[in-house]
């Protein structure tokens, strides 16, 4: 992989544990992402993927372990501060602000930026990336279709100029054509050099998109490696690809 050997990974998770009350949902995970990498995290329902992402974003607090991002220990950094540090999460179920317009949603994405004069240019860039949103910029986001809302959620995250974009099941509930469109965009963004952590239940699509992947089962990483190897492995074949 083409990363400078002497730089630490952009994100480095060590022995991360997360619990809901007494229920341990994440049980000691190690994971890393190099700058510019697109990494997939796959796993079936209830594996703990969302829990993991929420913890990375700061919405949940770890019961143990460490999250290092860009050389900083994140454990005590509040969620809203992580956005300014360049982390963005497109949450499961999208979390668009239904009663804000499309344009207002995108502006919310730029909330923590301090180069405010560039926001208007970036808005236009998002509308170029998602022309469907351009036509609907004044519409309340709650009135959009699921696919359009996914676009809002992604555009909104991109408005914060993230260095690490985390996507929680962007294909969920979308028609195949829309899934294609969203994944095309993910590849385009990755090609620009952004680091991406892609969480998916659609293992095949995720591993075809990412270079590297992790497989998560009941709160732990069971397999990791290059996407091609994972796609070919018997464990992934039988568990996720019905083969």
């Amino acid at each position: 992989m083409a990363h400078e050997a002497n730089l630490p990974p952009l994100l480095e998770v060590r022995n991360l544990q997360v619990a809901y009350g007494g229920i341990h949902a994440v049980k000691g995970i190690d994971l890393h992402i190099w700058a510019g990498e697109l990494v997939a995290l796959i796993g079936s329902n209830g594996a703990g993927k969302t829990t993991m992402l929420k913890t990375l974003a700061g919405l949940l607090h770890p019961a143990g372990g460490q999250i290092k991002y860009d050389g900083n220990n994140l454990n005590d950094v509040a969620a809203h501060r992580r956005v300014a540090m360049g982390m963005a999460l497109v949450p499961e179920g999208r979390g668009v602000f239904a009663r804000l317009t499309v344009a207002e949603n995108l502006l919310m994405g730029a909330y923590s930026r301090n180069d405010r004069h560039k926001i208007a240019t970036d808005l236009e860039r998002m509308y170029a990336l998602f022309p469907r949103l351009a036509e609907r910029r004044g519409q309340l986001a709650g009135t959009l279709s699921g696919g359009e809302q996914q676009m809002v959620a992604m555009a909104r995250a991109l408005m914060s100029h993230p260095r690490l974009l985390m996507l929680d099941e962007p294909s969920m509930g979308l028609a195949p054509l829309m899934v294609q469109k969203i994944f095309e965009t993910i590849r385009d963004i990755a090609a620009l050099g952004m680091s991406i952590l892609l969480v998916e239940q659609n293992a095949k699509l995720a591993l075809q998109t990412a270079k590297r992947g992790y497989v998560m089962e009941s709160g732990a990483i069971t397999l990791s490696g290059a996407s091609g190897e994972l796609l070919g492995s018997d464990a992934v074949q039988s568990a996720y690809l019905g083969g």
Partner: peptide, 24 residues
């Protein structure tokens, strides 16, 4: 205003607002 937008965002979804960098 930016503040008003943040207020409406927090009113609607506190988690999502935090993910935008809003100190709720």
């Amino acid at each position: 205003t930016r503040l008003g937008r943040a207020m409406r965002a927090v009113a609607e979804n506190q988690h999502a607002a935090q993910l935008m960098g809003v100190d709720i």
